[in-house]
């Protein structure tokens, strides 16, 4: 890229598409945190990232909507990564679900930007969060698979449980509970234990 490379993309690694992508997404997220989604423009992202408008459009051909969607997806990815790290070493599936629900609920309540956007622009936010959650459900189900397999190998599952289907079912309930705890107080360990033992694992774990 002799004709433009030297002028615009001077930072080391700037030609690495992953790092440019990451740089733009982080810059977009910073803009959203500062201005909100409705007011964030491509020009803001240009200024924040230090990259050219042309570079940004090359990586995000959908423009502004594309940037916003990927910024939300990036933060959901961060959240899921932190959640996965938090529960990775759990000794069994019940402990994993118990700890994971407590951690996830705290993360949602304490996420300042999420809470602010739920007040100021819930429609835009929920639209994107929901589109991305179509990808979140398979992620959670896939994450749970090895743990379900371990439970099965240890003889702790009911006979005939379909592991993929059980993972899908658990993923649905987990996503539902994180977004909307309903009558459950997920900060209360006794309630979480009852929720996990009866509603999440009632039909999965052998008694």
């Amino acid at each position: 890229m002799v004709h433009n490379g030297a002028v615009v993309d001077t930072a080391p690694g700037a030609h690495d598409p992953i790092s440019v992508h990451d740089q733009v997404v982080r810059a977009t997220y910073a803009c959203v945190a500062r201005f909100g989604m409705a007011k964030t423009t491509v020009e803001d992202v240009v200024r924040e990232s230090g990259l050219s408008r042309a570079t940004i459009y090359r990586h995000f051909p959908g423009g502004r909507e594309d940037l916003l969607r990927q910024a939300i997806a990036w933060e959901i990815g961060n959240f899921l990564g932190a959640l996965a790290d938090h529960v990775r070493d759990a000794p069994d599936l019940a402990t994993l679900l118990d700890d994971g629900l407590g951690f996830a609920r705290r993360a949602v309540v304490e996420h300042d930007l999420l809470q602010r956007m739920l007040q100021t622009e819930p429609d835009r936010l929920l639209g994107l969060v929901t589109t991305e959650s179509f990808k979140t459900l398979p992620f959670i189900a896939a994450f749970l698979q090895p743990y379900l397999e371990r439970e099965a190998a240890a003889g702790r599952l009911r006979a005939g449980v379909d592991l993929a289907e059980a993972g899908d079912h658990l993923g649905r309930l987990i996503l539902s509970l994180i977004g909307a705890p309903g009558r459950w107080d997920l900060d209360d360990p006794a309630q979480r234990r009852m929720l996990v033992d009866r509603e999440l694992l009632g039909g999965i774990r052998s008694v």
């Binding site: 429609d123 929920l126 639209g127 969060v129 929901t130 977004g179």
Partner: peptide, 10 residues
């Protein structure tokens, strides 16, 4: 859809 989504989440 967000009209319904905001009714069932958060």
């Amino acid at each position: 859809p967000t009209v319904l989504l905001s009714a069932v989440s958060f």
